[in-house]
Amino acid sequence: MDSLHLPAFQYQRPGTLREALELLSISKGPAFPLAGGTDLLVQLRSRPFAPECLFVDLGNLTELRGVQLENNNLQIGALATHAQLAASPLIQAEAPLLAWACARVGTPQTRTRGTLGGNVVHASPAADTIPPLLVHEAILVICSPQAKRRSALDRFLLGPYRTTKRDDEVLVAFSLPRLTNQPPAGCYRYGYQRLIRRQAVGIARIIVAAALRLQGHTISEARLACGAVTPVACRLGGVEEWLRGKEAILPVFQEAGERASREAFARIGPRWSTPYKQPVLASLVRRALQQAGDS
């Protein structure tokens, strides 16, 4: 076998979720659910996998692909692809930040195959869909052979490429509490900014996702998440608090940008790149808020 080919592994393609969970739990070696494969097949070349590693292909579990609105929750199957979500009128209407992010993941080819579940479980610090999902306070629905558990996304993510998911678990769905646009509480408006060297096939250097709830010109609620700058994407609670009750005007957005940047970099401590990234994050936050305020 030459270097172009993939190493050996075990493979199963179950027809039901129950079977998939069963296979994962009885595997002799490490077991991995396989969704689109756009991360897993790349990893197969860059790190050692023992021949007893088991890939459990979820491709036949079409019930994990749907997107629907249920009791004021947006339910997204873990196997929904980026292309599908970017084009979904429901996602565009209810979670435009997620639709924007999905439309920017990789290339048309990787968006056809890559799934939302795979993006989140892979847990790259630069995963494009994570900041929007944090803004929506997404709940993950995770199944094991014994039980079904629900976890908030911020608790699921432990570190770069590390999550609370166990080997015998499958992420089945995301549940996003609907951000309703009802008076008098005001309407949600959104902004998404991403810094990257090349628009396609790059790794985002900074991602900002913002939602503002506006009553007239007053911000009644702000949600702000950043990705790729911190080891784990996170909400910036301090700035969110500061923004509440402020006017949706440029000087406020400018100051929020500065505050957001200080807050994010305080979490990770100084690095060689901080002097470069700090002003850029401030601008991107300002732009995301402006985009939300103007929309």
Partner: peptide, 23 residues
């Protein structure tokens, strides 16, 4: 062989995919 160059692009059920990233 890792999804970046697109030289392996084919259509599966009418959609463009990287043939190097599908088993």
């Amino acid at each position: 062989g890792i999804g970046e160059c697109g030289a392996c692009t084919v259509l599966v059920d009418g959609e463009a995919v990287n043939a190097c990233l599908i088993l």
